[in-house]
Structures are given as C-alpha cells and as structure tokens.
C-alpha cells in the first residue's frame, strides 16, 4: 500500500523580514530620514514537519515565535524566503483557486465578518464566493448552527455580539465551504472557559465528521490537551519539539509532583522535597524524577499517610520550562 501524501509538508522553511530600526531622540529621527537602518529578522528559521490527512496538531510557541508567520505561509498569504511548503500538494503562495477552496484560516484576533450587519449576510456572501451549491450550503449551515448553537446569533448585527458569540460566527464563516485543511490561529483567545470548551469540542467534532486536517495555535494548554495528541513547538523561529504531548512532558521535566494527605498538618516535609503548597492537611511536593520511588516509600513509612498521588507537573508548567530553555 502506498502511503497517502501528507496534507501539509514543510521543509527547511524560512521567512526573513527586513525591519527598520530607529533609536529615540531627534538626531536619530533625522538620521532616519536620510538613511534607515535595517536589520534582517528570521521570523521562521528553518523548520520542517509534515501533517497526515485528518491529523489535529497543536502548534505552540511563545508570542513572536513565528507561529502566525508559518500559518500565513501555509495559507498562501506570505511568500517564504526559502524552503519548501506544500499543502494538499499545492504551493500555497500561488493562491490557486482550487487550493483556496479547500483551506481556511481563522484568526482569533481578526475578523472577516461584515461588522455592521447580521452574520448571516457574511455567510451568504461566502456561499456566493465559494460557489457552494444551495443544498450543501443549507445542510452545512444547519450543521454548524446546531454544533455551535448559532441560531439566536445569526440575525443580530455582528457588532452587537459578544466576543465569544462573534468567534463562533467567525469559525462558522470560515468552515461553510467545508475546507479539508483548517488553520486556526488562537481561536479561543479572550473567551471564557465555557465558550473555550464549546469551541474545543466543536473543533474535535468537525475533524471527526469531515476528516479535516487541523493545525491549531493556542496559548491555552487546555485546548491543546483536549484536542491534540501531537504538538509542534517552535521558539525564535526554530523547531524545539515535534511529537506526542506525553513525550513532551517526559522530555522537558525532571520533576514529579507528589500530593500527600496526612492525618494532621504538624509534620515538616522539607526533608522529602520542595514543598509547593500545604492546605487542609494536603501537601504538594516537588521531587526529582529519579527519586520519586524512594521519596514515596519513605513518606509512606514515616508518616500517617491517608492518601498519596504521584503526578506529572501541569502542562502549563512544562511549556513554560520549554520556552525558558532553548534546546533540551
């Protein structure tokens, strides 16, 4: 059997921007008039990865890591400085119509809906733009309306919607043409927890139903944990990690967390490990991974333990550590 070609293929991708620099002060301003000092900044600096059709992958990195630049190169808005990009076999920056019909880019901080009128008008406009046949449009719209609970929102002017409501409409507008490749840039930014969860489960559902390939950036680890088995982490435009979320945790932490519940709170647990918190007779300890077994054994032997739990540190903490160091 032949392996199907990857939905997304990136190899040694680079994007260098020329940025003009100006110091503060009148003299610098005058100098800037005559000759601008420019520097070259590599926003994306040689990254490679593939996505199989139907995969959902979390694309992580701190602000300015090069995530959005990469998404823009994948969707065809930016021309790479060097390297290979292919999406569904197309070269994105050529922006061929048959390519554009199969992708979408949803940006949490930008909106494409017409601001002053109800979202349904923007949906209808997209129907015409993507030439969606009426019956397919109807059924997709019904499906999206049901999954995202859009019914009460469709006929309100977009400017009157809350941030979360607007985001749901943005997502629906981006998916009406049933794209097979979906780029989501911070789709849950600024939303409350309930709304985040709703959008998350919607993305999972869309992926299942249509077999779409999804590349998702988010600052909320809950999004990533819920949706993505695989994550790609970049920092300063370079690839730091590509693999299973669980492997990321293994690779980047040398500690485990032990939560112990004692009969009373008198004990001093400093000698067992770093005490992170102590509430209601419940201690949280941080211990080096290699010593987890030994410390656990000692705790059980020495103290009146009611309950004991060994955990990996929370994913936020792991990510923070990944970003803090350059390369493991």
């Amino acid at each position: 059997m032949m392996q199907p070609p990857p939905a997304i293929h990136i190899k040694d991708l680079r994007k260098v921007f020329t940025v003009s620099q100006q110091d503060s002060g009148a003299r610098a301003a005058l100098q800037g008039l005559v000759k601008r000092r420019t520097i070259q900044v590599a926003a994306v600096d040689g990254i490679s990865f593939d996505l199989e059709p139907g995969e959902i992958v979390g694309f992580l990195g701190p602000n300015g890591a090069g995530k959005t630049t990469t998404l823009k190169m994948l969707s065809g808005l930016l021309h790479p400085t060097s390297g290979e990009v292919k999406v569904l076999g197309y070269i994105p920056w050529k922006r061929e119509k048959s390519f554009l019909r199969q992708i979408t880019l949803v940006m949490g901080q930008r909106n494409q809906l017409v601001w002053d009128i109800p979202a349904i008008h923007s949906f209808e406009l997209n129907r015409a733009v993507y030439r969606i046949p009426p019956d397919i449009y109807r059924s997709t719209l019904d499906e999206l309306t049901e999954l995202l609970e859009l019914k009460p929102l469709l006929n309100k002017p977009v400017r009157n919607l809350s941030l979360g409501e607007r985001m749901k409409c943005e997502i629906a507008a981006g998916l009406l043409h049933r794209p097979t490749v979906v780029f989501l840039d911070e789709p849950t930014i600024g939303l409350d927890v309930t709304m985040q969860r709703r959008i998350r489960s919607f993305i999972a559902e869309y992926n299942q139903r249509f077999g779409a390939t999804v590349l998702l950036t988010s600052h909320y680890m809950a999004d990533v944990e819920a949706l993505c088995r695989r994550v790609v982490v970049i920092h300063h435009g370079k690839l730091l990690f590509d693999g299973d979320l669980s492997a990321l945790v293994q690779n980047f932490t040398d500690h485990k967390t032990i939560v112990v519940r004692l009969e009373d709170c008198q004990a001093d647990l400093k000698e067992y490990g770093e005490v992170i918190s102590c509430e209601d007779n419940q201690f949280t300890l941080r211990v080096p991974k290699a010593e987890t077994a030994r410390v656990t054994e000692r705790l059980l032997a020495d103290l009146p333990v009611i309950d004991l739990l060994v955990e990996d540190p929370p994913i936020e903490e792991v990510i923070e550590r990944v970003f803090a160091q350059e390369k493991p």
Binding site: G76, T104, R110, V129, Y130
Partner: peptide
C-alpha cells in the same frame, strides 16, 4: 491596516469583484 485584505486574498475570487 485591519488585515481584511488578508481574508480577501484567501478567497477564490479576485477582490475587485466585490
């Protein structure tokens, strides 16, 4: 400035039509 042009460029129709 608002990035609306980016959305227009991702549509399979030349923006001049709208």
């Amino acid at each position: 400035r608002e990035g609306l042009l980016s959305f227009a460029l991702l549509k399979p129709v030349h923006p001049i039509h709208s």
